[in-house]
Amino acid sequence: MAGPVKGPASYFPSIEATYGRPVAEWQALLREQRSQNPGVRHSEQVAWLKTEHGLGHGHANALVAATRAEDDA
C-alpha cells in the first residue's frame, strides 16, 4: 500500500483544482520554455508562472521542482 504523496507532487491536486489545467499541461509549458532557453533558472521559471499565469509561489515552485526533477533524472 502506498503512503501519502510527499514533496512537490503533494501540491498537484490543488494546482489542478485551483487553475483548471492538468499538471501535464503546466509541465509541457515549462519544458517548452526550457527547450527554448536551456539556461533558464528555476527561480526564473517560478517567476514566469507567477507573472504570466497567476500561480501562487508555492504552486509555481512545486511545478518547476517536480518538472526539473523528472527531466534531470
Rank of each mutant, 00 (worst) to 15 (best):
E52R: 14
P13A: 04
A62Y: 02
W26S: 07
R31I: 06
A24Y: 08
A2E: 13
S14T: 09
S14W: 15
A69K: 05
E25F: 12
P13F: 05
P38F: 08
E16T: 00
N61R: 14
R21E: 11
Y19T: 01
A73M: 10
Q27W: 02
G7F: 10
G54A: 02
W26A: 07
N37I: 10
A2M: 10
W48I: 00
L63A: 07
G20K: 09
T51K: 11
Q36S: 13
L55E: 06
K50H: 12
V64I: 03
A24G: 06
S10H: 02
G56Q: 00
W26C: 06
A24W: 09
L55H: 07
Q36M: 04
G39H: 12
A62K: 14
H42A: 00
K6M: 15
I15F: 12
A17P: 13
N37S: 12
N61W: 00
K50S: 07
E52A: 10
S10I: 07
E70Q: 13
S14G: 14
E16P: 02
Q27T: 07
R68N: 00
L49G: 04
V5W: 13
K50D: 03
P13Q: 04
A47E: 14
V23M: 13
A9E: 14
P13Y: 06
E44I: 01
E25P: 01
F12M: 09
A17L: 08
G56N: 09
S10Q: 04
V40I: 02
T67D: 03
T67M: 05
A17H: 09
D72W: 11
G58C: 06
G7T: 14
L55V: 15
R34F: 04
S35P: 02
A69F: 10
P13D: 09
R21P: 00
D71I: 15
E32W: 05
M1T: 03
S14F: 14
E70I: 06
W48D: 07
A17S: 15
D71L: 15
E70T: 08
Q33L: 05
Y19E: 01
H59L: 04
A28S: 08
F12A: 02
E44Q: 15
W48F: 08
A60I: 08
Q45I: 15
K50C: 08
T18I: 07
A60Y: 01
E44A: 15
F12L: 07
A9C: 08
V46R: 01
G58A: 05
R31H: 05
P13W: 07
H57N: 11
A28N: 03
L49R: 02
H59G: 03
V46G: 01
A60H: 01
P22V: 12
H53Y: 03
G58N: 04
Y19R: 14
A2K: 11
L49Q: 07
A73H: 12
A47M: 13
Q33W: 04
W26F: 05
N37E: 09
L29D: 01
E16R: 00
A60R: 04
A69D: 06
A28H: 14
A66V: 06
Y11F: 10
G54V: 00
W26Y: 05
